[in-house]
């Protein structure tokens, strides 16, 4: 049995089978896993915001979708994972509170998902599965040995994508 690596908010980790990687309590944040099934290696990043260019304090690249995805790819490349074998699965991007005001901060989840998909497309990485949006938090556990992403949410049966 391997270990389970825990990734916090605005952070990332690289993980190789038999280890697994998890991130807990994704609200409007998005958990992105990029994996390579040949080497059974993956990287998970927990991004908070879509666009680093709109924020002054943007030194933490893992916080933003636009800088986080390139960072994750770079780290995967260091482990010998790059090119056409890479695939992605994503989860999160919920809208936790239902506000009637049209404040753009309230649909940051949607913007996060959009930016993640844009970045993955830009680098030519196919998205094999996603569980995004709606109004509940998610915990994800990714197993690089079979590329399965287990998603648990409060009061719902767990699902695997």
């Amino acid at each position: 049995m391997g270990d389970t690596i825990k990734v916090g908010i605005a952070d990332y980790a690289i993980c190789k089978s038999p280890d697994m990687v998890t991130t807990i309590g994704l609200g409007s944040c998005v958990g992105v896993v990029i994996y390579d099934q040949m080497t059974k290696t993956c990287g998970l990043i927990h991004v908070m915001l879509p666009d680093s260019t709109r924020i002054r304090a943007n030194s933490n690249k893992a916080k933003f979708a636009d800088t986080g995805i390139p960072l994750l790819l770079e780290e995967l490349k260091k482990k010998g994972c790059s090119g056409r074998g890479l695939r992605a699965k994503i989860a999160g991007g919920a809208k936790m509170f239902e506000f009637t005001t049209n404040n753009n901060a309230t649909n940051v989840g949607e913007q996060n998902v959009e930016m993640v998909l844009t970045q993955l497309k830009k680098f030519g990485i196919p998205v094999m599965a996603k569980d995004v949006g709606l109004n509940f938090g998610r915990t994800v556990l990714f197993d690089p040995s079979d590329a399965s992403m287990k998603i648990t949410a409060a009061g719902k049966p767990p699902k695997v994508i």
Binding site: I24, G25, G27, S28, M96, F97, V108, F136, A154
Partner: peptide, 25 residues
């Protein structure tokens, strides 16, 4: 003050909302 909204969920997912909005500062 805007009308209140309720959310029952994982503490981490709830707290990410204020963190995201004001975490920059």
């Amino acid at each position: 003050l805007t009308p209140p909204q309720i959310c029952i969920d994982m503490a981490g997912a709830i707290l990410s909302v204020p963190v995201i909005q004001f975490g920059q500062t």
